[in-house]
């Protein structure tokens, strides 16, 4: 905990010292600085520029239907820093096309989580600042932080009593369910975010676990979807912390997300949303790589790439241990 506080303190100091410019925490932002240095090639004709010569780029999670702006491109050098598309007509859009709109800059305490043999969970501190070219708006800004693990389809089975015994009866596949999902915000999501915005960015846990398409082999697919959330929440894999984000002076914010010990490998996506009047103003996205290292890495790779050798190794180890114990006990008996 003490180390965590130090990380926050250091992060906030850095932010203050550098005046919350794009140069802040270049290691964490990675491509952010590079994007600034090399102006993106304009695609299409007259792509609307928001500010500082950045092309608006579509976040991967943004719904596609009719949302693409003519000039929407992903900035060269990877999509780590993302700017919202310049949508038109939707409520709250005027706020986004404002050149003086507020921006969010954020960094994580670490962008790499190593799963070692003694890995027992870790904590990621997310901190950042709200950048303004104009005086602060009235009203406190809200910040939502989400971290999601790799998503995969899940088979959900339900038991029913058949001939007196409980047996798996109905089953369905939930098409997408993140292996881990944490969402922290400055207040209850219902109050902080409008339903439309929640749907667009899939922020609430409920919108992360979903069945695609209406075709389903069960009468009540929603019950199965809810079961995924309930079971994963019980395992500590789905976490909702409504008031875990702390905002200081309407400018700086900090939160922490605990990764449990039973996480899987993969690229975890951390998103930081800046919200005003229940509308998303800006989004910052970055990737946390969760990787097995050392012996864990080696054993896992061997088991997949050379399964026969791995199996033989397991057997040899087993027999050696059996023989060793037998010998030790024989010697002790003498």
């Amino acid at each position: 905990m003490r180390r965590g506080r130090a990380v926050i303190a250091a992060g906030l100091c850095a932010l203050l010292a550098l005046g919350a410019s794009w140069a802040v925490a270049p290691a964490a932002l990675g491509q952010g600085a590079a994007d600034d240095a090399t102006p993106p090639a304009p695609s299409g004709s007259g792509a609307p520029r928001t500010m500082q010569g950045e092309a608006p780029s579509a976040p991967p999670g943004a719904p596609a239907g009719g949302r693409e702006t003519p000039g929407a491109t992903v900035a060269p050098g990877g999509g780590e820093v993302l700017v919202l598309p310049e949508g038109r007509g939707a409520p709250g859009e005027d706020a986004r096309s404002d050149p003086d709109r507020e921006r969010v800059v954020a960094a994580l305490s670490h962008n790499q989580v190593s799963i070692t043999t003694t890995y027992a969970g870790s904590e990621i501190f997310v901190f950042g600042a709200i950048k303004r070219n104009a005086p602060a708006r009235t009203g406190e800004p809200d910040v939502i932080v989400t971290i999601s693990g790799p998503s995969a389809p899940v088979t959900v089975r339900r038991k029913a009593r058949m001939f007196g015994v409980w047996a798996n009866n109905a089953s369905t596949v939930v098409d997408a369910a993140p292996s881990f999902y944490a969402v922290a915000s400055t207040g209850p999501l219902r109050d902080v975010l409008s339903a439309t915005e929640n749907l667009r960015h899939r922020i609430a846990l409920d919108s992360q676990v979903r069945t695609i398409g209406a075709a389903s082999d069960v009468a009540d697919p929603d019950a199965f979807r809810e079961a995924v959330i309930r079971l994963r929440r019980a395992q500590g894999l789905y976490v909702e912390a409504p008031i875990e984000v702390e905002v200081i002076e309407s400018t700086l914010f900090t939160t922490h997300v605990a990764l449990p010990a039973n996480i899987v490998e993969g690229d975890y996506v951390a998103r930081v949303f800046l919200v005003h009047d229940r509308q998303v103003i800006d989004l910052h996205e970055t990737v946390v790589g969760v990787r097995k290292v050392g012996l864990e890495r080696w054993l896992f790779a061997l088991s997949r790439e050379a399964p026969l050798q791995y199996g033989l190794l397991a057997l040899i180890v087993a027999l050696a241990m059996g023989w060793g114990a037998s010998e030790v006990f024989r010697l002790m008996r003498r």
């Binding site: 995969a152 389809p153 899940v154 088979t155 959900v156 089975r157 339900r158 038991k159 029913a160 009593r161 007196g164 015994v165 409980w166 798996n168 596949v173 939930v174 199965f224 079961a227 995924v228 309930r230 079971l231 994963r232």
Partner: peptide, 17 residues
């Protein structure tokens, strides 16, 4: 007993094929 008793959780998860 587990076969006959009403389970606390009717649903179970498995990796989809």
């Amino acid at each position: 007993f587990d076969l006959v008793a009403t389970p606390a959780e009717l649903y179970s998860l498995a990796a989809a094929p």
